[in-house]
Amino acid sequence: MTLAFRPQLTGLPVLETERLVLRAPKAEDWPAFRDYRASPRTVYAGGVKKEQQAAEQFASFFGHWVMRGFGRLIAEERATGQPVGHFGPMQWEDAGQVELTWSLWTAAAEGRGLATEAARAMHNWVFGPLGLTSAKAEVHRDNAASHAIARRLGGRLAPDQRPVWMEEGAIYLFSGAAA
Protein backbone atom coordinates (compact mmCIF):
# COMPACT_ATOMS: atom_id res chain seq x y z
CA MET A 1 0.00 0.00 0.00
CA THR A 2 1.15 3.54 -0.66
CA LEU A 3 1.56 5.66 2.42
CA ALA A 4 1.06 9.39 2.61
CA PHE A 5 4.30 9.86 4.51
CA ARG A 6 7.89 8.76 4.01
CA PRO A 7 10.25 8.86 6.98
CA GLN A 8 13.73 9.77 5.77
CA LEU A 9 16.88 11.61 6.64
CA THR A 10 17.00 15.10 5.20
CA GLY A 11 19.65 17.78 5.13
CA LEU A 12 22.59 15.42 4.72
CA PRO A 13 25.56 16.39 2.54
CA VAL A 14 26.09 14.83 -0.87
CA LEU A 15 29.74 14.28 -1.79
CA GLU A 16 30.54 13.88 -5.46
CA THR A 17 33.66 12.24 -6.81
CA GLU A 18 34.67 11.19 -10.29
CA ARG A 19 32.97 7.80 -10.13
CA LEU A 20 30.88 7.95 -6.96
CA VAL A 21 28.14 9.83 -5.19
CA LEU A 22 28.22 9.66 -1.39
CA ARG A 23 24.69 10.31 -0.16
CA ALA A 24 22.30 9.71 2.72
CA PRO A 25 21.55 6.10 3.63
CA LYS A 26 18.04 5.05 2.67
CA ALA A 27 15.77 2.07 3.28
CA GLU A 28 16.46 0.68 -0.20
CA ASP A 29 20.13 0.12 0.73
CA TRP A 30 19.16 -2.66 3.13
CA PRO A 31 19.45 -5.72 0.84
CA ALA A 32 22.95 -4.73 -0.30
CA PHE A 33 24.05 -4.01 3.27
CA ARG A 34 22.50 -7.26 4.53
CA ASP A 35 24.36 -9.27 1.89
CA TYR A 36 27.62 -7.52 2.78
CA ARG A 37 27.11 -8.15 6.51
CA ALA A 38 26.46 -11.87 5.81
CA SER A 39 29.60 -12.21 3.69
CA PRO A 40 33.18 -13.11 4.63
CA ARG A 41 34.12 -9.55 3.64
CA THR A 42 33.24 -8.53 7.20
CA VAL A 43 36.15 -10.54 8.63
CA TYR A 44 37.97 -7.34 9.67
CA ALA A 45 34.80 -5.51 10.73
CA GLY A 46 33.48 -7.65 13.54
CA GLY A 47 32.70 -10.73 11.45
CA VAL A 48 29.57 -12.18 9.90
CA LYS A 49 26.42 -10.92 11.59
CA LYS A 50 23.03 -12.53 11.80
CA GLU A 51 20.32 -10.70 9.89
CA GLN A 52 18.85 -9.37 13.13
CA GLN A 53 22.13 -7.78 14.23
CA ALA A 54 22.78 -6.51 10.71
CA ALA A 55 19.38 -4.82 10.70
CA GLU A 56 20.09 -3.15 14.04
CA GLN A 57 23.38 -1.85 12.71
CA PHE A 58 21.67 -0.63 9.55
CA ALA A 59 18.95 1.16 11.51
CA SER A 60 21.63 2.68 13.70
CA PHE A 61 23.14 4.38 10.64
CA PHE A 62 20.03 6.60 10.52
CA GLY A 63 19.77 7.05 14.27
CA HIS A 64 23.42 8.07 14.50
CA TRP A 65 22.85 10.91 12.02
CA VAL A 66 19.87 12.17 14.00
CA MET A 67 21.66 11.95 17.35
CA ARG A 68 25.10 13.27 16.39
CA GLY A 69 24.50 15.34 13.28
CA PHE A 70 26.97 13.22 11.33
CA GLY A 71 27.36 9.59 10.36
CA ARG A 72 27.85 7.15 7.53
CA LEU A 73 27.19 8.03 3.90
CA ILE A 74 26.47 5.43 1.26
CA ALA A 75 28.71 5.43 -1.79
CA GLU A 76 26.78 4.82 -4.96
CA GLU A 77 28.56 4.09 -8.21
CA ARG A 78 27.53 6.58 -10.88
CA ALA A 79 27.85 4.04 -13.69
CA THR A 80 25.41 1.54 -12.17
CA GLY A 81 23.46 3.47 -9.53
CA GLN A 82 24.28 0.64 -7.11
CA PRO A 83 25.39 1.21 -3.51
CA VAL A 84 28.92 -0.13 -3.09
CA GLY A 85 29.82 0.70 0.49
CA HIS A 86 29.56 2.97 3.52
CA PHE A 87 31.95 5.73 4.50
CA GLY A 88 31.75 8.14 7.36
CA PRO A 89 32.55 9.24 10.88
CA MET A 90 31.07 7.38 13.81
CA GLN A 91 30.95 8.20 17.52
CA TRP A 92 29.24 5.69 19.80
CA GLU A 93 30.27 7.13 23.13
CA ASP A 94 29.42 10.72 24.02
CA ALA A 95 33.00 11.42 25.05
CA GLY A 96 34.65 9.02 22.61
CA GLN A 97 36.93 10.00 19.78
CA VAL A 98 35.29 10.11 16.38
CA GLU A 99 36.19 7.13 14.24
CA LEU A 100 36.50 7.29 10.47
CA THR A 101 35.03 4.17 8.87
CA TRP A 102 35.10 2.80 5.35
CA SER A 103 33.79 -0.46 3.90
CA LEU A 104 33.26 -1.73 0.39
CA TRP A 105 30.32 -4.11 0.33
CA THR A 106 31.22 -6.37 -2.61
CA ALA A 107 34.28 -7.98 -4.15
CA ALA A 108 33.19 -6.56 -7.51
CA ALA A 109 33.84 -3.05 -6.18
CA GLU A 110 37.41 -3.92 -5.16
CA GLY A 111 40.64 -3.24 -6.99
CA ARG A 112 39.61 -0.06 -8.79
CA GLY A 113 40.50 2.51 -6.18
CA LEU A 114 36.88 3.20 -5.27
CA ALA A 115 37.44 2.87 -1.53
CA THR A 116 40.29 5.38 -1.62
CA GLU A 117 38.23 7.75 -3.76
CA ALA A 118 35.28 7.60 -1.35
CA ALA A 119 37.38 7.68 1.81
CA ARG A 120 39.24 10.75 0.57
CA ALA A 121 35.98 12.59 -0.12
CA MET A 122 34.66 11.59 3.29
CA HIS A 123 37.88 12.66 5.02
CA ASN A 124 37.85 16.05 3.29
CA TRP A 125 34.25 16.63 4.32
CA VAL A 126 34.95 15.60 7.94
CA PHE A 127 37.88 17.98 8.30
CA GLY A 128 36.36 20.62 6.03
CA PRO A 129 32.64 21.46 6.19
CA LEU A 130 31.90 19.26 9.20
CA GLY A 131 34.67 20.98 11.14
CA LEU A 132 36.25 18.14 13.11
CA THR A 133 39.89 18.57 14.08
CA SER A 134 40.83 15.01 15.04
CA ALA A 135 39.68 11.46 14.41
CA LYS A 136 40.93 7.91 14.54
CA ALA A 137 40.55 4.73 12.50
CA GLU A 138 40.74 1.16 13.75
CA VAL A 139 42.25 -1.31 11.31
CA HIS A 140 42.84 -5.05 11.68
CA ARG A 141 46.48 -6.13 11.53
CA ASP A 142 45.93 -8.18 8.37
CA ASN A 143 43.72 -5.73 6.51
CA ALA A 144 46.38 -4.46 4.12
CA ALA A 145 43.94 -2.55 1.90
CA SER A 146 42.65 -0.53 4.84
CA HIS A 147 46.14 0.20 6.15
CA ALA A 148 46.95 1.66 2.74
CA ILE A 149 43.85 3.87 2.81
CA ALA A 150 44.61 5.08 6.33
CA ARG A 151 48.11 6.09 5.23
CA ARG A 152 46.85 7.80 2.08
CA LEU A 153 44.50 9.87 4.24
CA GLY A 154 47.46 11.08 6.28
CA GLY A 155 46.85 8.81 9.25
CA ARG A 156 49.66 8.32 11.76
CA LEU A 157 49.97 4.97 13.46
CA ALA A 158 49.57 5.18 17.24
CA PRO A 159 51.91 2.35 18.26
CA ASP A 160 50.77 2.18 21.88
CA GLN A 161 47.03 2.05 21.23
CA ARG A 162 44.78 -0.92 20.47
CA PRO A 163 41.08 -0.94 19.62
CA VAL A 164 38.99 -2.11 22.58
CA TRP A 165 37.04 -4.58 20.47
CA MET A 166 39.88 -5.84 18.28
CA GLU A 167 43.07 -6.94 19.97
CA GLU A 168 44.75 -7.60 16.64
CA GLY A 169 44.04 -4.09 15.46
CA ALA A 170 45.95 -0.88 15.02
CA ILE A 171 44.85 2.70 15.56
CA TYR A 172 45.57 5.53 13.16
CA LEU A 173 45.19 9.14 14.16
CA PHE A 174 44.10 11.89 11.80
CA SER A 175 44.27 15.65 12.06
CA GLY A 176 43.07 16.60 8.61
CA ALA A 177 46.52 17.31 7.25
CA ALA A 178 48.19 15.85 4.18
CA ALA A 179 45.28 14.06 2.60
Binding site: P25, K26, A27, A59, F62, G63, V66, M67
Partner: peptide, 13 residues
Protein backbone atom coordinates in the same frame (compact mmCIF):
# COMPACT_ATOMS: atom_id res chain seq x y z
CA UNK B 1 22.19 5.02 23.08
CA UNK B 2 22.38 2.28 20.46
CA UNK B 3 18.87 1.14 21.32
CA UNK B 4 17.62 4.69 20.81
CA UNK B 5 19.48 4.87 17.48
CA UNK B 6 17.77 1.62 16.52
CA UNK B 7 14.35 2.95 17.48
CA UNK B 8 15.02 6.08 15.41
CA UNK B 9 16.43 4.20 12.43
CA UNK B 10 13.56 1.72 12.42
CA UNK B 11 11.43 4.63 11.18
CA UNK B 12 13.52 4.89 8.02
CA UNK B 13 14.28 1.21 7.54
Amino acid sequence: WRAFCHLTGHWVH
